[in-house]
Simulated assay, not measured.
Amino acid sequence: MSRVDTELALIASRFQLEGAVQSISPYGDGHINDTYLITTDQRRYILQRMNTDVFPDTKSLMRNIELVTGFLKSQGKETLDIIRSNDGATYLEDSAGAWRVYAFIEHTISYNLVPNASVFRDAGAAFGDFQNELARFDASQLTETIAHFHDTPHRFADFKAAVQKDELGRAASCKPEIDFYYAHADVYPIIMDGLKDGSLPLRVTHNDTKLNNILMDATTHKARAIIDLDTIMPGSMLFDFGDSIRFGASTALEDECDLDKVHFSTELFRAYTEGFVGELRQSITAREAQLLPLGAKMMTLECGMRFLADYLSGDTYFATDYPEHNLVRCHTQIKLVQEMEASEGRMDAIVEAVMESGSAETAENAKGDAL
């Protein structure tokens, strides 16, 4: 093994793994944590060095995950399986950082781009079902792992501070992008105000519902497990719905340089809405349904704003591969927002049709039950 491999092997040896370690290699394309695939002569595992700058309260973070995965397992759901350290802890710390290990969930795949509407519909159903399950979980047990994570007005305040500080002198070259986010300031408080006044219910939410956080069965392509539970916190269902649409209803990756390839698909929006609302039909409120399109727009605005703020601040949060990476990401999000705004009437009509089809189905079922 190389020096790095040897260091990782030493970390791995401190967890309760089955078999002798054969290899450890980088895995995945996440922005935040460092992730490795461990292969032993018996099975595979995921090793992660957690980003303690983003998640400074590692103890509370892992307690959240332990509570949620334990609850989901008690409901018969497939979920992340924490592998404990040799002393029985859910993670360990050393001079290089904080480390955890999960069992690798075999015979699964994930998608960075939606391959077809059917898969995206199933993804919507998976996250809807995830929220249904956690509706029975006591959210008061959870700690807020990142303060103000989807508090868009707070994110906007951070954005304005980054523009004002202009740490690397990049703001002058980003004036159109900066102006775009200032021009949308009136919509940023809507969801948070709804949570505060009670017009939107507080729910346990995943808060990072990108398509690649669902593991699909490699044969059936049906959802099996929701992963990346670091941001499990109380919030609005609009956060989860909106971030899924931001990521999944785009025709390109979020760092696509050619904006001619970046489009918002109303058909993928329809497919996800059918799956998500189909699972949550008994609990979704009229106000939540009305604001589903806004949730998609809000999460796209918020994410693009964060990419641009990070670019202005020297790329200290999101992992980047080249100097303009975060600016490129910002551009894709702006393009998506623009196309969402052009499609607002269509999005509203889709939600209304999905809600009405459910009402008709409910009425028909009730009629059948009465016969």
Rank of each mutant, 00 (worst) to 15 (best):
R346T: 06
V351W: 02
Q333L: 06
D348F: 02
A349Y: 00
Q333G: 04
S359Y: 14
L336D: 00
R346C: 03
N326Q: 11
V328L: 09
R346L: 05
E339R: 12
C330Y: 05
N326E: 05
Q333N: 11
M355K: 09
Q333K: 14
K335W: 07
H331P: 01
R329F: 12
A342P: 13
E339F: 10
I334F: 00
L327P: 04
E341K: 07
E339N: 09
A342Q: 15
I350D: 00
S357H: 13
K335C: 10
V328G: 04
A342F: 13
V351D: 05
D348I: 03
H331N: 14
A353Y: 10
T332A: 06
Q338W: 04
I350S: 00
M347A: 05
V354H: 08
M347V: 07
R346H: 09
I350W: 00
E352P: 09
E339Y: 06
E344G: 01
D348H: 10
S343H: 12
I334T: 09
V351T: 06
G358D: 08
S359C: 12
V328N: 02
V351E: 10
E356L: 12
Q338L: 14
M340P: 04
M340D: 01
E352A: 15
M355C: 13
S357Q: 14
T332F: 11
M355L: 15
R346W: 00
E339V: 12
S343M: 13
E356K: 10
A349C: 09
